[in-house]
């Protein structure tokens, strides 16, 4: 390994970070929260793998119970969980709402983190330039 390898590794990391920052700006325009349930005998089989809903085996194991999409301008789409009598399933709905609140907090803190990281990077660059 030589300095050029290290330089390449750092450049790759910087590029990844820049790409993440770019996609973050695009992705953050909407926030999506999905709540699934699965039979207790099957939850362990989900461990470690991808949650790819296009996978028919996985799709049979998971039941989408609630969905929320919030646009940056606060337009909101919500799919409510209902039981066999078309009544809102409170237990699932409560779980889902809690996750939505958590997701909003996460997005807020990620915005702060990205802001801090970019400020630090700019500050460091200014010191080098100065």
């Amino acid at each position: 390994m030589a300095e050029s390898d290290l330089r390449l590794a750092i450049e790759k990391f910087a590029k990844d970070l820049a790409a993440k920052a770019e996609s973050f700006v695009e992705d953050i325009s909407t926030l999506e929260v999905r709540t699934f349930t699965t039979p207790s005998a099957e939850i362990a089989t989900l461990a470690g793998g991808e949650l790819d809903l296009a996978d028919p085996t996985l799709a049979r194991q998971l039941q989408l119970r609630a969905y929320t999409k919030i646009d940056f301008d606060c337009d909101t789409t919500i799919c409510l969980p209902v039981d066999n009598n078309d009544q809102v399933d409170r237990s699932v709905w409560d779980m889902h709402q809690t996750m939505v609140m958590q997701a909003l907090k996460t997005r807020e803190s990620m915005l702060k983190s990205m802001g801090t990281a970019l400020t630090s990077a700019l500050d460091a660059l200014q010191r080098v330039a100065g």
Binding site: K20, S23, F24, D27, I28, L31, E32, V33, R34, T35, F36, T37, T38, P39, S40, I43, L46, L51, L62, M95, H96, M99, V100, Q102, A103, L104, T106, R107, M110
Partner: peptide, 11 residues
Amino acid sequence: WSGDHSVTWQD
């Protein structure tokens, strides 16, 4: 990364 959540609960 952007905060989207997918949650799977045991029944």
